[in-house]
Write a protein that binds this DNA or RNA. Sequence first.
RNA 1: GGGGAUGUAGCUCAAUUGGUUAGAGCACCGGCCUGUCACGCCGGAGGUUGCGGGUUCGAGCCCCGUCAUCCUCGCCA
Length: 591
Amino acid sequence: MLKRTCTCGELTRDRLGDEVILNGWVDGRRDHGGLIFIDLRDRYGLTQVVFEPGSPDAADLADPLAAAHSLRNEFVVAVKGVVNARLPGKENPKLKTGAIEVRAVEFEILNASPTPPFEIQGAEANEELRLKYRYLDLRRPALQAVFELRHRLTQLMRNTMSELGFWEVETPILGRSTPEGARDFLVPSRVKSGDFYALPQSPQLYKQVLMVAGFDRYFQIARCFRDEDLRANRQPEFTQLDVEMSFVEHEDVMSTMEILVARLAKEFAGETLALPLPRIDYHDSMERYGNDRPDLRFGMEIRDLADVAAKTDFKVFQAALAEGKRVRGLCAPGGGTRYSRKDLDGLTEFIAGFGAKGLVWLKVEADACTGPTAKFFSPEVQAELRSKFDANVGDLILIVADESHVTSQSLSNLRLRLGLELSLYDPKAFRYCWVVRFPLLAWDAEEKRFAAEHHPFTMPLPEDLHLLDTAPSKVRAQAYDLVVNGEECGGGTIRIHDPAIQSKVFALLGLTPEQAEEKFGFLLSALKNGAPPHGGIALGLDRLVMLYAGLTNIRDCIAFPKTARGADLMTGAPNTVDPKQLRELRVRVVE
RNA sequence: GGGGAUGUAGCUCAAUUGGUUAGAGCACCGGCCUGUCACGCCGGAGGUUGCGGGUUCGAGCCCCGUCAUCCUCGCCA
């Protein structure tokens, strides 16, 4: 074959007169009858090739037009030719190689291709088709740019961690199923039939063992598996930068990771971060933003309105307060003029999806607030409400009265929707923060016991240790989440290395010492054998790529992603297997 | 498991209240064209309206079921 001497993205006027060979895909053909242009594409760019009979360069090509005429989009070809300057005024400023063209001397079709099911050059294509023909989809320059970014981001992580003294260590993919957390993907053992491996939800326990082993600083670009339902930002297998450090407290982990985050911000957002990044208490985040992953690109914070509500004649508010529920709201700048009655009905319906039974709205107008319930608010109460939000004429005050978690859920989602609809932020901006001091435990009403908010080895805050015995639900953890633009991009904790504290936590989780031993025996044993104080974090690599690439969907930054039902449309996985395979594994499919 | 949206030509979409032979742009095929780069011009081919049933004189449109994709609640230590 004619092997390439250069790529389709590199030729400029510096190479005029050179004979070169290009390899690539036909990106387009412009057939003028007596003169044919072919755009040749590879990962590096696009180069125009000209087939012109009678040109002195084409002397060796018997019938250049017939040759070029037979080419179709996505054919793989090799072209030998001479680098020529384009005719004056015919340069294409949109291309890196737009000043030159290659006059074909010789060419070879390396592979033909049928008409693609969608246009590689076009922007639009049904995602189902794109996933089925992923090799064509991934040929598109926009997708290739994402994967170049992903590569650079991964390299920056590796290099930074290495530079900071971390060792990259691989941990098993076939591991042990452990309770708590997400549903495991299970792999049947053939040798020990009836038993199963589990794919790691994260390398959590292994990395703690590495700390006991004295590795001191560990990282891994780790694949993790969780058998839970998918979302726009969630895949059943995903990649984390997994990190663990010895002899540290939570501030050490955060400040170390901030070095990396600052480099990411510099490289991929062109921004110099002010360190340390803001820390927000979990409790504050829930109060002000209604969730534990605040989007700090805009304000419009949620306010508690219990005191104002108490002064209204509105029975819904009075009843809610009497029942110990909460009244909270937010003020959308310009929302009063922007939203019609019908839009507001839409917002009410929107929050109904989060369990809210109603939405009280008040448009702030020059002399008074208006709305169906405005009559319950005296002028004094209206004034108090306006001042609480620093509301201006044209704003929209939205209030929800309900159980605390319902007000949080509905208002946080309302806030995000309004922020987008009212263009309250620059979609290209990045805002980072740490959410800290999470509760250690969450009450599981169904199971009537506490469940670990993060995982069962999370260390309480020192000042809350005494509450383990008296008020476990009030104990806060040495846990921290990295949040970027309202997206949870990482989370970690300091681990318990004191057996006494660990026993107490297990007891709160409803685990007897025997059960704990059975489920986590290897880790407990390791922790007893000279475990250093340690802690770590994992960053969601896919999500970071998604954010920096400006994507709203995690599938677009994973080479071979799965659909919402966990299917790989290209390979057809998951699929049925040969009964012989099942027999070997002693696995039977139950109808 | 629940809720919502979508499914019409290879692709992206249209098709009035249920009413003639289901259209357009792009792509594709053929012809013409020596400076295009979203080439242009002329012509052509291309449809199980996701699938199955039903209502109706008549269904792309209405009803029931089903499948797939997307968003979402639950779930995701």
